[in-house]
Lab assay of single mutants.
Amino acid sequence: VTLFVALYDYEARTEDDLSAHKGEKFQILNSSEGDWWEARSLTTGETGYIPSNYVAPV
């Protein structure tokens, strides 16, 4: 399991995006899409895309 933590708040801009709150942890499901990674929030269980530069490894 690849875990990352949000460094900043991010507000989803499309229905495919996933909002993130600073300190929230995510499981990365797919990081092969360049700057946008598919992730699952460990807080809400929701999945979507987050900007890779907004997260760091735990």
Rank of each mutant, 00 (worst) to 15 (best):
S19Q: 07
G34C: 13
F26T: 00
R40S: 03
I50F: 03
S31K: 13
A56M: 10
F4M: 08
E46H: 12
E38P: 05
E38N: 07
S52W: 12
E38T: 11
V5W: 07
D17Y: 13
D9L: 06
V55K: 00
S19R: 07
W36C: 12
E38D: 04
Y8H: 07
D16L: 14
S31D: 12
A39R: 01
A20R: 01
L42V: 09
A12Q: 06
Y54F: 12
E46T: 07
R13C: 14
W37L: 10
G48D: 01
V58Y: 13
D9P: 06
G34D: 12
G48Y: 05
E11C: 14
A12C: 06
A20E: 02
V55Q: 01
G45T: 02
D35E: 12
E24F: 05
A12H: 04
H21I: 12
E33V: 11
E33H: 14
G34T: 11
S31M: 15
R40C: 08
Y49W: 15
W36D: 03
F4R: 02
G23A: 01
T2K: 12
L3N: 04
D17F: 14
P51M: 06
L29N: 04
S32C: 14
D35G: 12
D17C: 15
H21D: 04
T43Y: 09
E15I: 11
V1R: 11
W36S: 07
N53C: 15
S41N: 10
E38V: 15
T44I: 02
Q27C: 14
A39C: 08
L7C: 11
T47N: 04
S41R: 10
T44Q: 02
A12D: 02
W37H: 03
E24L: 04
G48K: 02
F4L: 05
A56D: 03
V1K: 11
Q27P: 00
N53P: 05
T14E: 08
F4V: 13
R13D: 06
S19N: 10
T14H: 14
Y8P: 00
E24G: 03
G45S: 05
V5I: 12
P57V: 08
L42I: 10
S31G: 09
L42W: 07
L42C: 15
L29S: 05
T47W: 09
Q27W: 15
G48M: 03
D35W: 10
L7R: 01
I50T: 02
W37V: 09
E15Q: 12
A39L: 09
A56N: 04
N30S: 11
T14C: 15
S31R: 13
A20F: 15
L7Q: 04
A6G: 02
I28K: 02
L29R: 04
T44S: 10
Y49I: 08
S32D: 10
F4W: 14
E38K: 13
S41A: 04
S19F: 05
L29M: 07
E15N: 12
G34A: 13
D16K: 15
G48P: 00
K25A: 07
V1Y: 14
E11P: 06
T14N: 14
W36V: 09
Q27E: 14
K22M: 09
L7H: 02
E46Q: 14
D35A: 10
S52V: 07
I50W: 02
R40T: 10
F26Y: 04
P51F: 07
L18N: 01
A39D: 01
R13V: 12
E33K: 14
Q27M: 13
L3A: 05
L18I: 12
L29F: 08
A20V: 15
D17R: 13
V55H: 01
